[in-house]
Each structure stands twice: as C-alpha cells, then as structure tokens.
C-alpha cells in the first residue's frame, strides 16, 4: 500500500535548482535509502516532505491526501511525520525525558505520567534507561542521536525521515545508531534515509535511489544498484565511495 508519493517536485533557491522534478513512491513498511553526493538534493527532498521547505512545483501526498496543498495545515502534517537531523538538534535546556515527552504532551495531549512511561519504555528498548534525567550535553554523540530518534518516534509517526543521521558521528558510534534504525525496520517503521553509509544502505534498504544534481537518476533493489548499476553516473559515484 502506498503511503507517500512524491510527484514531480521542484525546488529552487533563487537561480539554483536543487530538485528538478523528483518522483518517488514509498509503500507502508518500506525503507528507502537516498544516496548521492553532497548537494545532490537528498536533504532538501526530506525537508520538502516534512514541509520545512515549500515546493516550487509538484505535489507530495501522504495517506492519499496532498500535504503540499496550500490550504493544508503544516502542523497537522508534521504530527504524522518524524524527522531526525544530522546535528541531533536536541533541546539543550531539557532533560532527555523532557525532550522525548515534549511533543506527546504538548501536541498530542498525552498526560505527563503516560508520556513518561512510554518514553522510559523506548529508552529501555534502546539501552538508554539510565540517561532519562541527563541533559543532552552530558551524552555522547551516538547517545544524543539515539535520543533524537526516540524523540522522533515517540509520537508514533506514520513515516520517519532520517537526514544523514550518522554523518556527525565517529565510526565507533555509528553502529549503535544504525542498530536502532535496524530495529525500527524490524518493527515495521516506514523510513526514508539520506545516507552516506553505503554498506548500511545495501543492508537495510528495500529500495535505493541515486540522486545527482537534483534528479533521481536511478532506483532499484539494493543488490541491483550496488551490484549492477545501470546509469554511468551511478557507477562513477559508487566507484568513488
């Protein structure tokens, strides 16, 4: 069943065109990995899906409703989509528990006791139960990013966007974050990841999409993309990584 469709999306900053008519469909429970060089438009595509950027043309639909409709309420759309950023973006003045329970309590109207119980369950599941009362600056990068992922899924979104979530981490910390994402896939979370971790993309993705200069040049099963890429630019990109 199709959860999200991206249909001919264009995005430009002044004269610079970042996305040039991107089409993409994502099924429920599907994991899509976006690969491509920095500046190819991966992050911008994710930001468009979360309505952090307004598209200049084209449409994005979630659950068969167009979310890029100018009459749609962006906050209502974002309630159903979680996003995790490269730089974690945790709120430094709140404890881990408060970071996670903020949206459930203030946006979704969950009571404090219930929200904290759910947050503690998630923290336990991802091995962070001892950090509930700590502040983000006391945590390692890997722990902060895991908290950021928990914060994004605490509202039980329909779709999770992950924007190069391991790019700011050193190699020893990357695995703990990738482990969390792997577990989310097993639990059936629909995800779109922009990533530079090719091995991980091959391992976890149902579909891999290669973007270059704002165009989605090639898409397919990870074995096909990594094993027998059709487009010369995909071959060139993969040979350099």
């Amino acid at each position: 069943m199709t959860l999200l469709t991206i249909d001919g999306v264009w995005k430009r900053y002044g004269e610079h065109e970042v996305l040039k008519g991107v089409d993409l469909a994502v099924d429920t429970h599907e994991v899509v990995c976006l690969i491509g060089a920095s500046g190819s438009g991966k992050s911008t595509l994710l930001r468009c899906v979360n309505l952090l950027e307004t598209v200049d043309d084209g449409a994005i639909t979630l659950d068969d409703v167009e979310i890029t409709d100018v009459r749609a309420d962006p906050d209502d759309v974002r309630k159903r989509i979680g996003i995790v950023f490269q730089a974690y973006n945790l709120f430094p003045h709140m404890s881990v528990l408060d970071n996670i329970t903020l949206a459930p309590r203030k946006v979704h109207g969950v009571g404090r006791a219930q929200a904290e119980e759910q947050a503690r369950e998630l923290l336990t599941r991802f091995g962070l139960e001892s950090k509930a009362r700590d502040y983000p600056d006391r945590l390692s990068g890997g722990q902060q990013q895991r908290v950021a992922i928990i914060r994004a899924i605490a509202t039980q979104p329909r779709l999770l966007l992950l924007d190069e979530v391991t790019s700011a981490l050193d190699p020893t910390l990357v695995n703990e974050v990738l482990g969390v994402i792997r577990e989310l896939k097993e639990s059936g979370m629909t995800m779109i990841l922009a990533t530079h971790e090719m091995g991980f993309a091959r391992d976890i993705a149902d579909t891999v999409c290669f973007l270059a200069d704002g165009v989605l040049l090639e898409r397919g099963h990870p074995d096909q993309i990594f094993g027998a890429p059709k487009h010369p630019r995909t071959r060139e990109f993969l040979s350099r990584t």
Partner: peptide, 11 residues
C-alpha cells in the same frame, strides 16, 4: 541530463 522547468498547471 538537462531538465528545464515548465510551471505545471498544479503550481
């Protein structure tokens, strides 16, 4: 590959 933007009716 060159693609030029023609504003769609939707836009």
């Amino acid at each position: 590959m060159t693609t030029t933007w023609v504003k769609s009716d939707r836009q």
